[in-house]
Write a protein that binds this DNA or RNA. Structure first.
Lengths: 353, 353
DNA sequence: TTGAAAGCGCTAACAA
DNA sequence: TTGTTAGCGCTTTCAA
């Protein structure tokens, strides 16, 4: 029967040296004769010794681990950020762990995490977080380095790396207007993260700038899922005066809209144009390709990690809010409106500054 | 300037009590007068005290955290398992962190993780792992509880929760044969995880049982991605005698096949039937719906967590290998082959035992 | 080159 | 009800 935990003491005893010598021999730091080193390593091997990470971390103060907290790992957008962050983190020789809260932070279940806040991580990145006000305050009061990605529910003193939803949405809707559309619908997502609200603001701004009066009937509630997009499109098509273009708060709903349109045998974009947001995997392969917007995920991940590392190392030059323009991806789901004379569309993809 | 880390000593000092009293007052365990408790809590609040998880874990021996290790978090299948495990883990009041290795374990980069193996976690679950032989041996030699999900590359002494790829694939191909198909192609995935090999074994077994001689031309290599499925289908269609049915090692490739077939204006399933594996999100919404197989993800996650918890608690009744039958999901992408007289298809979805 | 002592922050066990 | 002592496994500091 093996002892459940083999410690450095056991190894040292077996090798006939002091604990400290064993430590040095295994870590490779400090002086140690070749002979001792070999002896200790053999002993460690034989006993199946694995250093206790906890003890090592505790001593050092730094853990060289950062945590990434998400509410819903299955989300395409979240997953994209997490993967990009994983890649970025290795450049700093740090490890990274992901915590999936499965729902809003701060409502009881999230409590456990706040206990883990201190000590385990050198810093935390929250991706598209949904949290109670209390939880946000706790975070703000915390002394650990924290960076948020795409948090936009309320004002915070925490550093935030954001994609520009408002101007992205405005570009998209302006593009539709330029194509000749006047009745442009908006399909909302859920309000949790605030993304949908910002995209709606851009939508409204574009209409206003073009002198088009918004029609409340053209704004329909969805829940970011494909099904709700299809439902929304059916609602919109049943209007006395249906829209000639639909802007959905995300791609999943936009794809749902496209299904519903096909169902009614409406052509895209000849009869109705569709735009989404996020540029998820399916959007490039669907027929016709979905015109959409995307946050520059890799640069944003890079900025977040860099900012977090700055804070971990207590370096100056901290920025409170780093904003990235959205990229506009024009595919085949947008075209001139049926009422308007065909006009040449002008690609206006904006590049990151 | 706030001190970077506030410890229990600071709180105790401020409250004018001993460290132990402070510990008791905050944890709520053991005796403490209301007055003291209030005093200590006020002090903690004021100083922004957060308990050091590391120290607490070190003391207790148990961390109440389990780790989930994956090679590629973006994979639909992996993501499904991870989410299911997250949900299962909360029943045990444990926390769970995910480690994304971004590639094979054991090739240098994975080294860091093996350091974290001990102490940080009470146990580890590897989902669809890809690892070097050395890494596997290290794991087998480790004293920490470990459970694998869908590992099938080689024999191991570690407990494995598996979906039955072989019989699942056999069912699928038998279904095609029953529908009258004789020339049935198989699109391979990458060999890393061993999943594709097992599915191929089932494919071969079904052909053999029906007395159909396998044609090497009908087995084409893909890489589990949609694009490779489309390429594979094009290769197959260019054959002198093309297949009337295609079984792809996963859904992504099956969807790729469907695109390529549509491109050639072939009807599904009238001209060619298609079957995939995994039942990913898109498979139910594509037209026609993709006939596919799936592992029973939730029960498998449950079994893995349960088995891990058993080992963490050193309970008896351990099982080395737990296998779950695949579920066969018949949708509209399969039908009678063109050469055969139409025959009634019989749904043979097998339920989990 | 090696070893002894101290301590990271916390809590279990005992003593007051 | 509160305080003291000891120790989790490791590494930093200093002495041999």
């Amino acid at each position: 029967m093996k002892k459940s935990t083999v410690t450095l003491v056991d190894v040292a005893k077996k090798a006939g040296v002091s604990v400290m010598t064993a430590s040095r021999a295994l870590s490779g730091e400090g002086y140690a004769s070749e002979e001792t080193r070999a002896k200790v390593q053999a002993a460690a091997q034989e006993l199946g010794y694995a250093p206790n990470a906890l003890a090592r971390m505790m001593k050092g103060g730094r853990t060289n681990v950062i945590g990434v907290v998400v509410n819903d790992l299955a989300s395409t957008v979240v997953n994209g950020f997490v993967t990009a962050i994983s890649e970025e983190v290795r450049k700093y020789e740090m490890d990274m762990f992901i915590y999936n809260s499965l729902g809003d932070l701060g409502d009881g279940k999230g409590k456990r995490l706040s206990q883990l806040l201190h000590g385990l991580w050198d810093g935390l990145i929250y991706v598209l977080p949904r949290m109670s006000d209390d939880y946000l305050r706790t975070l703000e009061a915390s002394t650990s380095p924290i960076v948020m990605i795409n948090y936009c529910k309320q004002e915070t003193t925490l550093p935030v790396v954001r994609g520009d939803n408002v101007n992205g949405a405005r570009d998209a809707v302006a593009h539709l207007i330029e194509l000749g559309h006047r009745r442009i619908a908006f399909v909302r997502g859920t309000a949790y993260t605030g993304q949908s609200d910002e995209r709606e603001r851009g939508y409204r701004a574009a209409l206003q700038e073009a002198g088009i009066e918004g029609d409340p009937e053209l704004i329909v509630q969805g829940d970011f899922n494909e099904q709700s997009g299809a439902d929304a499109a059916r609602t919109l098509l049943a209007l006395a005066e249906p829209p000639t273009a639909i802007f959905a708060a995300n791609d999943a709903m936009a794809l749902g809209c496209m299904s519903a349109l096909r169902e009614k045998e409406l052509r895209i974009p000849q009869d109705v144009s569709v735009i989404g947001f996020d540029d998820m995997a399916g959007s490039a392969v669907v027929q016709p390709g979905l015109t959409t917007l995307r946050h520059p995920v890799a640069p944003m991940a890079q900025a977040a990690v860099q900012e977090l590392m700055r804070r971990i190392q207590s370096q100056p030059g901290r920025r409170q809010r780093i904003e990235f323009p959205s990229e506009f991806v024009i595919r085949a789901s947008t075209g001139p409106g049926p009422e308007a004379p065909a006009r040449k569309s002008r690609a206006r993809a904006r590049k990151q500054a």
